[in-house]
């Protein structure tokens, strides 16, 4: 690990000021479960680490008057797992409780996963899958971006050097009736090789009105697949495979293509089979 200066601001404004003051070499650290691994390998060597641990309002979950769920960026997976969330928003708890392992979930944060923008991570897939909005604080003020615009490339986000991701906002409950998440990994604590999210909204008579399918792991950033709202699993899987464009014929790519096909078919069939709003 390369030497660095440790900084512990108490407010978001202070943290932003520190990032601005120390320029390119400064990095934000929340739980550090991804960043520290990279630092030990010397893949990154920040000159200053700005810790979010003392900024208390960055962790925790609140509900807005319109039903949107505001999840602080420094909320740990363990806290998300314990949260009692309503309707489909509960999927967030389930996804957080079924990734990495128990000790890592106690340190790792939702915001950390999004800022790492690793294509194999579940949180970026889920955030894009349910069309979450990300709140960002910076020297120039506050802004918000949809998750799919925030994730620019594998390991790259739209965050400016002096900006901090402050919250992940899940849309209000009526946005979706059913959200289904599936992933494939070899061992329980591995990151996913591929994952798929299906978010379904129905009209009053139960007719599908909108179907949002997101595929992650197989592409540098999660890919939203455009399909007809009534599409069944098989049809959606064909569209997804075409959309992710895994054209190469080598074995690893062929395997991923197969996973994408299977996972999308499963999430869509499961979503259609679920009655009511869950």
């Amino acid at each position: 690990m390369r030497p660095f200066t440790w900084l512990t601001p108490e407010t978001t404004e202070e943290a932003v000021a520190l990032l601005r003051a120390h320029g390119e070499g400064a990095r934000v650290i929340a739980g550090g479960q991804t960043l520290l691994l990279a630092m030990k390998e010397r893949l990154v060597g920040p000159s200053h680490l700005v810790s979010l641990a003392r900024i208390t309002d960055l962790a925790g979950i609140t509900t807005e008057p319109d039903g949107a769920l505001v999840v602080g960026a420094a909320t740990t997976y363990a806290a998300l797992t314990r949260a009692e969330l309503p309707g489909w928003q509960r999927r967030l708890s389930e996804v957080a409780g079924d990734l990495a392992d128990r000790p890592v979930r106690n340190r790792g944060t939702i915001g950390g996963a999004l800022c790492a923008a690793d294509p194999r991570f579940d949180m970026p897939a889920f955030a894009v899958g349910v069309d979450a909005e990300l709140r960002i604080s910076g020297a120039a003020g506050e802004r918000a971006l949809p998750a799919h615009e925030f994730l620019v490339d594998a390991g790259r986000t739209a965050l400016g050097q002096d900006e901090i991701l402050t919250a992940v906002v899940l849309p209000p409950l009526p946005t979706w009736d059913v959200v289904v998440f599936e992933k494939f990994r070899h061992r329980v604590f591995d990151a996913a090789i591929a994952s798929a999210v299906c978010a379904l909204r129905r009209e009053d008579h139960g007719v599908p009105a909108s179907l949002r399918i997101t595929v992650a792991g197989a592409t540098p950033t999660p890919t939203v697949v455009l399909v007809d709202a009534a599409a069944d699993g098989a049809a959606a899987a064909e569209s997804a495979v075409a959309a992710v464009r895994l054209d190469s014929s080598d074995e690893a790519t062929r395997y991923r293509r197969e996973l994408v096909h299977t996972l999308v078919r499963r999430v869509v069939d499961r979503a259609h089979a679920q009655q009511g709003s869950v």
Partner: peptide, 19 residues
Amino acid sequence: CVVEVDGDVVKSCNVLAVQ
């Protein structure tokens, strides 16, 4: 390397003491 920090288990090789 698992230890408890304030009652929660963590992998102590991936946490800085300053954290």
